[in-house]
Design a protein around this nucleic acid. Structure first.
Length: 882
RNA sequence: GGGCGCGUAGCUCAGUGGAAGAGCACUCGGUUUACACCCGAGCGGUCGGCAGUUCGAACCUGUCCGCGCCCA
């Protein structure tokens, strides 16, 4: 609040006012403003600065991606946080970048090649990887330009990519450290396999949907020794190596330990007892296919069963016989038909069951037994959980904690090897005599004959998980790392809490000697369509935020999304919402325009107390309250409420009342040096200055345009964040304006009911019955378009408002019926009020047990209602009979 | 099947024990020292049902109904 306006700047502002168009045209100013911000270095953080750091790393979007509405929400939130911190005097770093999205990117480039009938194998590994880099250079990173468009204050000088030299070093360093610590191991397990991408996937890269299927019951064996099993994947029976029953299941006691012939094959398989079989499910007997089902794999391990693989990498049958080479979905009915021919199908039932799909290409994943590299997550996950449990890392909103714990406390080991070419190649070398060597970043790999490197690459998440510190230079001890780690806030949608938060926490705590990667985790919800439905391509309800930016401006998109951003909860959004936000931008545009047209300026100091009118004291009091409220809401990440408070203040208080009242003091032609006009100009300028600064983190473009025009200063981006001044609180002034509002609204209602046009001036005699209203007659007259009674004044209607009696000469008869109806409605409400309050006050328990403050409130309510009844009753009696 | 959450105005949502709120939509009326992307006034709700606790319940408890999401 110590901003000053130089006379020269004021002159510039005056001329700017005359050139401000009547409506805000965002698209015309946004690009230019953003370039200027970047060029002036406002977003470039300085590691050598004395200011306390505040860091947000952007959860890196995918290099193949483009900005969707969820990104737009998240980045609006992150930018609102960081811009406020910058204004508060922190050394604010908001670090941009992207991840290399192994599978997605490889898929894109492979599709390109496929157009020419080529596969990556035709090119060979090295040429293919080069091709991907070429693709990235030409088409990748579309999202970065879209982020600029949104206006987010990212430090582009620090842009990072997970495949960059430095970040690749970090990956190799991390792998080596974990390998040496025994946290990375190689093992043959059941993994999720995508038969289209031809790679292993981790659990979180698989999406489960319910799909219709058929549960078939198959009889294995014959006569007394036969046993019936049920399956929805009949083709896997070719790989069965046992039938399992619960050890206590009395139905099968006589069969445990015996063998049964496996149909369609020449094999006999044992009937085994295993505690994990649910005797209640189906027949209580299950077929066991250890190489193609995770549960069966565990049974197989416990019982040392053979684990034959019956599907190749494309999920085609590899078992010799009639099914050889069939795709799994072809083989399924074929196997059932063959079994039916033998009379072995004893039941068929339709059912819905969850089916896993590759999150990148939607192909049904196949559980597959294979050798992969794994991260042993247990110690890492425990540390990640403890960091939250002991309060070093706070999750906002707190209600999201159980979701986090559910993840970190139940995490399975993580498959990190991918059978891809695009990514960080696993730094493991195998020797001719089964040697295995992990090569660190500063080491030379073995070059003797017979040595070769593991052909797999690492999960993209292995590198993204390092993001909060690899982007700051780790493993080098850089100035950035010293200054900006740990980061301050990690913000993302709750739907991917396990992607970002859990992985980054595990790696950060481990790599940085137990120092958490971020102090706070802030979670927001999903953006849904206007009916609250999740957006999806198949539903066709996906909206493109860029279209909204074209139509309404970036600020409108940001404000619209922030206004719905209640912590951790989903929000519905639609064109109308964004349009409303655009209207709001236009409203503050025009408020500032009005102010500047009337000579408003930002004073070095507010006028002395004795110069301030009651409306000045009121709006300054409210401003101070709003500063405190909004500041607290931003600090608590309650953006929806912060936006609501600002919207209400700007529109309903500043525009609808303060500016309207200011017209009394700033009439056309008022002298430039009129003392009271100067006071009004100073207060109005000050209020707008502070209001714009409060809004700036949410709506950077329009506030920059208006603020620089109003103040003549360099940029609101680097302006100081407002601080509340409790000394400005003035409850008495607030009460006066509230009383004015009551009278004015009551007269307006009367005028509307009587069909008096808004523009029509009406002669009236005012009798102020409330002492608070002393001196407010001109204000009431202005806002109600009431002229002074002249000779021949004859009241045709008398309105007894709460604080004033208003006798009006409407120059004609009034609509008695309409007036009677309205008054009777008021009377009925007051009577109901009296009834309710009387009942409460007649209740001894209430009087005895309710707090005094509540009892007093009810007493006051009763008194008010009774006086309303008297007032309105008198008015009714005074009406001419209809 | 297990866990978490939600049901408040036509729509989307605030509201954690003391008079039911907002935005949008809707109705009526409007060329006002900025703004029709506007101004003024208004309509609209047994707070999912039932039962309980309490002087007092949208809010606490139980139960039922409906709808999401995550995990098996």
């Amino acid at each position: 609040m110590n901003e000053t306006t130089t006379p020269a700047a004021q002159g510039a502002a005056d001329s700017a006012a005359t050139t401000l168009p009547t409506a805000y045209a965002p698209v015309e100013v946004e690009g230019e403003l953003y370039e200027r911000w970047v060029k002036n270095g406002y977003f470039t953080a300085d590691a050598a600065s004395d200011k306390p750091p505040f860091t947000i790393v952007i959860p890196p979007p995918n290099v193949t991606g483009s900005l969707h509405v969820g990104h737009a929400l998240n980045q609006s939130i992150q930018d609102a946080i960081i811009r406020r911190k910058r204004m508060q005097g922190f050394e604010a770093l908001y670090l941009p970048g992207m991840d290399h999205a192994g599978i997605a990117t490889q898929n894109v480039v492979e599709r390109e090649l496929a157009k020419d009938g080529l596969s990556r194998h035709d090119l060979g590994r090295e040429a293919f990887v080069k091709k991907v880099w070429d693709w990235k250079a030409e088409y990748g990173g579309k999202i970065l330009g879209q982020q600029r468009r949104l206006g987010v204050s990212l430090d582009w000088s620090r842009e990072r990519f997970t495949m960059d030299e430095g970040l690749s070093q970090a990956v190799q360093t991390m792998f080596k450290k974990m390998y040496d610590d025994g946290l990375i191991y190689r093992a043959e397990r059941i993994i999720n396999w995508c038969p289209r991408c031809l790679t292993a996937l981790s659990d979180i890269e698989v999406d489960h949907f319910d799909e219709p299927g058929e549960l078939v019951s198959i009889r294995y064996g014959d006569g007394d020794d036969s046993i019936v099993v049920a399956t929805s994947r009949a083709e896997t029976m070719l790989g069965d190596t046992a039938v399992a029953v619960h050890p206590d299941d009395e139905r099968y006691q006589h069969l445990i330990g015996k063998e049964v012939a496996l149909p369609l094959t020449d094999r006999r398989i044992p009937i085994i007892a295993d505690e994990h079989v649910d005797p209640e499910f189906g027949t209580g007997a299950v077929k066991v296919t250890p190489a193609h089902d995770p549960n069966d794999f565990e049974i197989g391990r416990r019982h040392h069963l053979a684990m034959p693989t019956i599907l190749d990498e494309h999920a085609n049958i590899t078992v010799h016989g009639p099914f050889l080479g069939m795709d799994r979905f072809e083989a399924r009915p074929a196997v059932v038909a063959a079994l039916r021919e033998q009379g072995r199908i004893v039941g068929q039932k339709q059912l819905l069951r969850p089916v896993g799909h590759c999150s990148r290409c939607d192909t049904v994943v196949e559980p597959r037994l294979s050798m992969q590299w794994w991260v042993k997550v247990e110690p890492l996950a425990k540390a990640a959980g403890d960091a939250v449990r002991d309060g070093r890392v706070q999750i906002h909103p707190k209600e999201m904690e159980p979701r986090y714990f559910a993840w970190v406390d139940n995490m399975h080991d993580w498959t990190i090897s991918r059978q891809l070419w695009w990514g960080h190649r696993i730094p493991i070398w195998y020797g001719p005599n089964d040697e295995v060597v992990c090569v660190g970043p500063d080491e030379e790999p073995p070059s003797e004959d017979g040595w070769y490197q593991d052909s797999d690459v690492l999960d993209t998440w292995f590198s993204s998980g390092l993001w909060p510190f690899s982007t700051l230079g780790w493993p080098e001890q850089t100035a950035d790392l010293a200054k900006f780690y740990p980061t301050s806030v990690l913000h993302t949608g709750y739907d991917i809490i396990f992607f970002w938060v859990a992985r980054m926490m595990m790696f950060g705590l481990y790599a940085m000697d137990g120092v958490q990667p971020f102090d706070k985790v802030v979670l927001s919800g999903l953006v849904r369509d206007q009916y609250g439905k999740k957006m999806s391509k198949s539903k066709g309800n996906v909206v493109d935020p860029l279209l909204w930016m074209d139509k309404y401006g970036s600020d409108a998109v940001r404000f619209g999304l922030l206004r719905g951003a209640n912590p951790g909860t989903d929000q519905a959004i639609a064109d109308d919402w964004i349009g409303g936000a655009r209207n709001f931008a236009n409203k503050i545009w025009n408020a500032t325009r009005f102010a500047m047209m009337n000579g408003a300026f930002v004073p070095a100091e507010l006028p002395a107390a004795e110069k301030l009118t009651v409306e000045d004291r009121w709006i300054l009091s409210r401003l101070n309250e709003v500063v405190a409220e909004v500041d607290g809401l931003y600090e608590d990440f309650q953006f929806a409420k912060a936006m609501e408070a600002l919207y209400h203040f700007a529109w309903d208080e500043v525009c609808d009342w303060y500016i309207e009242l200011s017209k009394l003091r700033l009439p056309i032609g008022v002298a430039a040096d009129d003392p009271d006009a100067q006071t009004a100009r100073a207060v109005l300028g000050h209020v707008l200055d502070v209001m714009l600064r409060l809004l700036h983190p949410a709506v950077p473009y329009v506030t920059e345009t208006l603020w620089t025009a109003l103040t003549g200063r360099e940029s609101i981006v680097i302006a100081q964040w407002p601080q509340a001044d409790p000394a400005r609180t003035d409850k008495a002034a607030e009460a006066v304006i509230e009383a004015v509002q009551e009278v004015v609204t009551e007269v307006r209602r009367f005028r509307t009911d009587q069909g008096v046009k808004d523009t029509q001036r009406v002669a009236a005699r005012l009798t102020l019955t409330d002492a608070k209203l002393a001196g407010q007659e001109p204000a009431i007259r202005l806002l109600n378009r009431l002229t002074a009674p002249e000779d021949g004044f004859g009241a045709t209607a008398t309105l007894v408002a709460t604080g004033a009696k208003v006798e009006l000469d409407t120059s004609g008869t009034i609509d008695v019926a309409a007036e009677r109806k309205r008054l009777e409605k008021g009377l009925a409400a007051a009577r109901k009020e009296v009834e309710a309050a009387t009942a409460k006050l007649g209740n001894a328990d209430f009087l005895a047990k309710a707090p005094d403050a509540v009892v007093d409130k009810i007493r006051k309510r009763l008194a008010d209602a009774e006086s309303d009844i008297a007032r309105v009753g008198a008015q009714l009696e005074a009406l001419p009979s209809a």
